[in-house]
Design a protein around this nucleic acid. Sequence first.
DNA 1: CTTAAGTACTGCAACGTTGTAACGTGCAAA
DNA 2: TTTGCACGTTACAACGTTGCAGTACTTAAG
Lengths: 339, 339
Amino acid sequence: MPARLKDVASRAGVSIKTVSNVVNGYVHVAPETRAKVQAAIDALGYVPNPTARRLRGGGTGVIALAVPELRSPYFAELAGLIVRAAEPRGWTVLIEQTDGRAERERDLVSGLRRHSIDGLILSPAGLDATEVLTGGLPTVLLGERMWDGPADHVAVDGAAAAADATRHLLRLGRWRIAAIGAPDRPTAVTRTQRLAGFRAAMAGSGLAVDPRLVVPVSGMHRADGAAAMARLLDQVEQPPDAIFCFTDPLALGAIRTCADRGLDVPGDVAVIGFDGIEEGRYSTPSLSTIAPNTGRIAQFAVDLLAERLGGGVSAAVPPRAICVEHRLLARESTLGRLR
Amino acid sequence: MPARLKDVASRAGVSIKTVSNVVNGYVHVAPETRAKVQAAIDALGYVPNPTARRLRGGGTGVIALAVPELRSPYFAELAGLIVRAAEPRGWTVLIEQTDGRAERERDLVSGLRRHSIDGLILSPAGLDATEVLTGGLPTVLLGERMWDGPADHVAVDGAAAAADATRHLLRLGRWRIAAIGAPDRPTAVTRTQRLAGFRAAMAGSGLAVDPRLVVPVSGMHRADGAAAMARLLDQVEQPPDAIFCFTDPLALGAIRTCADRGLDVPGDVAVIGFDGIEEGRYSTPSLSTIAPNTGRIAQFAVDLLAERLGGGVSAAVPPRAICVEHRLLARESTLGRLR
DNA sequence: CTTAAGTACTGCAACGTTGTAACGTGCAAA
DNA sequence: TTTGCACGTTACAACGTTGCAGTACTTAAG
C-alpha cells in the first residue's frame, strides 16, 4: 500500500496534477506550494509508480542484454561493465542467455517485446544478420560482425586483432603456428574473422598454414581448448611451436593440456589467447592475449542505445558501426618468465 | 502500434471483456465465440501488454538478482545458473551489482520497487539482517548468513565447509596454516563464518592459530589474494606450509605470488580455495577447493521465491533456511601432480 | 408455471500516472 | 480601463488491462 499521487495531493491540499508537476520538476509551481507538496511527499514516502508511468507512455528504464552465457568470463566481465555503464542513465539490465543457439536468439529477440523493455544489446552467435531486426526493438549488436549489418554495432576489428596476435608469435621466431578455435559451422562469424586474420598474417610472412594445425572447436570453454590441444598433439608427429587460441579460455585449457603432457609454455610452445580476461593476468604462466577495450565497448553500446532511444538519432539514420581499439598484452605464455 | 484487446474485439465482433476472457482461459465462453476471437487474435498478432496487466495487479515475470559483481567468477556462474533455473517458470532475471556495499544494497532493496519486479534474490555482503525486509519485496537471500535471518535463505554451512578445507590441509600433515580472506569489517558475515570454521578445525587438532597468519583482505579478487600473500610472506620469517584462502580468486592470486617468489605449490605451500569455480579445474596447478553445489543453490533460490510468489506459502510462514551440501575437491594445489 | 441456478456475454470502474486544455489570477503594456 | 500574457493551478481523458456487477437467455427443479 505505497502512497499514490492522490494521497500526497489530499495531504498537501492541492490537486493530483500539481503533485505530479512537482515530482516531475515542472517550472511553474509556486515555491510555497512546492514546499508544501514536497513535505507531503517526504512524510508519506511517496515514490512514483513506474508501471503507471510506462502505461502512460514512457520508457521502462529496463534494457535487455543477451549473451551466450554468463559463465564465460569474457561475457561476465562485459555484462558487469554494461550494467555499470547503464547505471548513470538510470537503466537496469535484464540478462538473457542464448547458449549461442541461433534459434534461442530468435526466440529472444521476438519474445522480448512481451516484457516491458526499452532496448536490447545483443551479442549474437549465429543469428543471421537480417533476422535481428524482426523484433522491432532498438538494438545494438556486440562482437565482430559484417560491417554492413542491420543495426548499430560495436566491435573490435577481429581480423586485424587476430593478425596482431599472430604477428606477435612470428616476431618471437615461431613459424609452426597452430590455431585453436576455428569455426565448426559457417555462421560462427567471430571465429571466421579471427581465422581470416590469422591466415592473413601468416601469408604476410610468406608462411603456409598447415591444415592439420587449424583446429575447429564446438565450444569456446577451457574444456574445449584442452580437448582441442590434446587432439592436435595426437594428430601431428611434431608439435607446433606456437598456438593462437581464439579465446582466453581456449588458451587456458590448451596450456593445461601442455602441462599435462610435459610441454613447457612458452619454452616448447608459445600460447596467445584473445579476450583479455582478468584470469589471464594471474594464471601460471600468465596469458598473453589480445585485449579488446571492453570498458569502451560497454560504454559505446549503452550510448548508442541511448541515442536511438532518446530520439537523438532518427530511426531513419542508417546503422552505425563503431570499431573499438584492442591491445596486445604480451605476458609469460609467449615471453617466458620476465625476471 | 501493437494490437490491443479493443482491436481484437472489434474485429471479432465481441466485447473487449470477452476477448480478455478468451486470452485468460475463462471457462464460460462458447466454443464458436472462442474460435472467432482466437482467429482475430492470430490475424492481428495480438500479444497482451504486460505493463497494463501489471498495473491492474498481476506479476511481471521479472525477478531481480543482486550480486556483488559479475566479474567475480563465482557470482557469474551462479547468475548464469539462476537465469537458467528461472527460465522454465517463464521468468526473466534483472541483474544488479552491489559492489558489496551495504549502502548500495539498501538503495537497491528499497529502490527496486520502482521497477516492476515480482521478487528478489539477494546475495548480501554487509547489509544488516533487519534491513533486508524494508523493501517489502518477496526476497530470498543467498550465502552464509545468520540462520535466523528475516527472509528465506539458501546457503552452504560456511563454517563446516571451512573446517573441511582446513582438515584437508591438516590431514596432509601441514600444521603451520595461514588463512587469507579474514574480514576487514565486522559486517562481512561470510568471511567471519569461514574464519570461525578455520579456527574450529585448528582447535580440533590442538593447534594454535598464529595471528600473523590470519590475513584480512578488503576485496576478494585475485589481486587481493596476490597482495595478501605478498604481505604475509614479507611479515613472517618462515612462510606457512599451507594456506586456506576464503575464495578461489584469492587462492589463485596467492598461488601467482608464490610462483613469483619461487615457492612451489604444493611442495612448499599447499593452497586450498573456496567456491569451486571452473577456472580452478584448469589452472596450473589445478586448485583444490570447497565446491558448494551451485546448481542446487540456484534451483532452491528460484523455487523458494516461486513458493512465496505463488502463494503456495503464506506470508506468515516463518522464513525457511536451506542448507546446500558442498564437496571437497582435492586437486594439485594440495595433492601435487597426480601422475 | 414459477423460481432458482447456471451459462454466455457485456459495461463500467479502477489500477496510477501524465498530456492537454482550460481556468483564474495578477501584472505589464497598450 | 482594457487587452494580453505569463503564471499557478486544476479537471479530464487516456494508456490497456481485468474484477465486479449486471443482463439476457437457457435449463432444471419445485
